[in-house]
Design a protein around this nucleic acid. Structure first.
Lengths: 111, 111
DNA sequence: CTAATAGTTAGGCATATGCCTAAGTATCAC
DNA sequence: GTGATACTTAGGCATATGCCTAACTATTAG
């Protein structure tokens, strides 16, 4: 079992929760302060902070406190380990499709 | 929140467990029967079966019983939803790096 | 300086999770 | 037909998880 599995484990466990996933989605566009991150959830602040702790411990986010304000950022490359692992879990049929240049047709999302 | 999030949730929760992840890794190369899947784990069979149930309910694997033998397969495309979501969780810096054609250097794995 | 703001720590609770054992069903080999 | 094999069902248990409230610390505005 490769060494990156500890990191992969932490990342996947972190992302297995919908609240934490939503936080990651929000941070993908720009860093945010804790209170902003907490706003969409009708959840006690300590609970949200616990989620942030998990994301930070998993290396998915980083945070910096300036005065009384803590800003949270997505760590660039944090999800690469998962991306890599995903690439490895392809069936022979999927790999064959890759070689033949047959891909899922991706519709362009409307921004 | 897009509709695929139910599917994404199920997949991520399924993959958050190391036993289930190991099962997926094994199935990536070829289908396997339950007893073979159970062999590497010193775990009671019903426990392993519970894991398989979760993977199947999440749409990650499929299984067929012939006689007394059940064969489990990775569902091609099962992890695409996660792959797509991952693609969306890139920081502006990472997206910029994409546009500039700056990529993680991938060493070619030795097969 | 006081009150408000932003976050932190500590403890608790209900539910979920990952494991177990025991008992059972269905199929197969001899 | 009997015993072995492969899986299935049911129930239970210890621990983890995701939430809560209360109390607190640190910073800031007026």
């Amino acid at each position: 079992m490769p060494k990156y599995h500890d990191e992969l484990d932490a990342v996947l466990r972190a992302l297995a929760d919908p609240t934490r996933r939503a936080v990651v989605e929000r941070l993908a566009s720009s860093p945010a302060v804790v209170s902003e991150l907490a706003a969409p959830f009708s959840m006690a602040l300590p609970s949200l902070l616990q989620h942030l702790r998990i994301l930070e411990d998993a290396g998915v986010v980083t945070s910096e406190k300036h005065g009384r304000v803590r800003t949270v950022s997505l760590r660039p490359g944090a999800l690469d380990v998962l991306h890599l692992w995903l690439g490895e879990q392809r069936t022979p049929a999927e790999r064959q499709a890759d070689r033949l240049g047959v891909h899922l047709t991706r519709t362009t999302p409307k921004d």
